[in-house]
Amino acid sequence: MKRILITGAAGFLGSHLCDRFIGEGFYVIGMDNFITGDKKNLEHLQEHPNFEFIEHDVTEFITIEGDLDYILHFASPASPIDYLKIPIQTLKVGSLGTHNLLGLAKAKKARILIASTSEVYGDPLVHPQREDYYGNVNTIGPRGVYDEAKRFQESITMAYHRFHGLETRIVRIFNTYGPRMRLNDGRVIPAFMGQALRGEDLTVFGDGSQTRSFCYVDDQVEGIYRLLFSDYIEPVNIGNPHEITIKDFAEEIIKLTGTSQKIIYKDLPVNDPLQRQPDISLAKKLLNWQPKIEREEGMRLTYDYFKSLSQDELYKSEHKNFKNHIKK
Rank of each mutant, 00 (worst) to 15 (best):
L125N: 10
L125E: 12
V126H: 08
H127E: 05
H127A: 03
H127R: 07
P128S: 10
Q129M: 06
R130I: 05
D132E: 12
D132Q: 08
D132F: 08
Y133G: 02
G141R: 00
P142N: 02
R143D: 02
G144I: 04
G144W: 00
V145G: 00
V145R: 01
E148G: 03
A149D: 01
A149V: 02
A149T: 04
K150S: 08
F152R: 05
E154T: 00
E154F: 01
M158T: 06
A159R: 03
A159P: 01
Y160T: 00
H161L: 01
H164G: 00
G165K: 10
G165N: 10
L166H: 06
T168W: 08
T168N: 09
R169E: 00
I170W: 03
I170G: 04
I170F: 02
R172C: 05
N175Y: 12
T176C: 15
P179H: 10
P179D: 11
P179Q: 13
R180P: 08
M181E: 14
L183E: 12
N184E: 14
D185I: 08
D185E: 11
I189G: 12
P190V: 15
A191H: 15
A191T: 15
G194R: 14
Q195I: 10
Q195R: 14
L197P: 10
R198Q: 15
G199H: 12
G199L: 13
D201N: 15
D201S: 11
V204S: 14
F205Q: 15
G206E: 15
G206A: 14
D207N: 15
D207S: 13
G208T: 11
Q210W: 14
T211L: 12
T211V: 13
T211Q: 12
R212P: 07
F214S: 10
C215Q: 13
V217Q: 04
D219H: 05
Q220A: 15
V221F: 05
E222F: 03
R226F: 09
L228R: 04
L228H: 04
Y232V: 06
P235Y: 01
P235R: 03
P235N: 01
P235H: 02
G239I: 03
E243D: 07
E243P: 05
I244P: 01
T245P: 01
D248L: 06
D248F: 01
D248N: 10
A250K: 07
A250N: 07
A250W: 05
I254A: 03
L256T: 03
L256N: 02
T257F: 05
G258P: 02
T259W: 01
T259E: 06
S260R: 07
Q261I: 02
Q261K: 05
I263L: 09
I263S: 07
I264G: 07
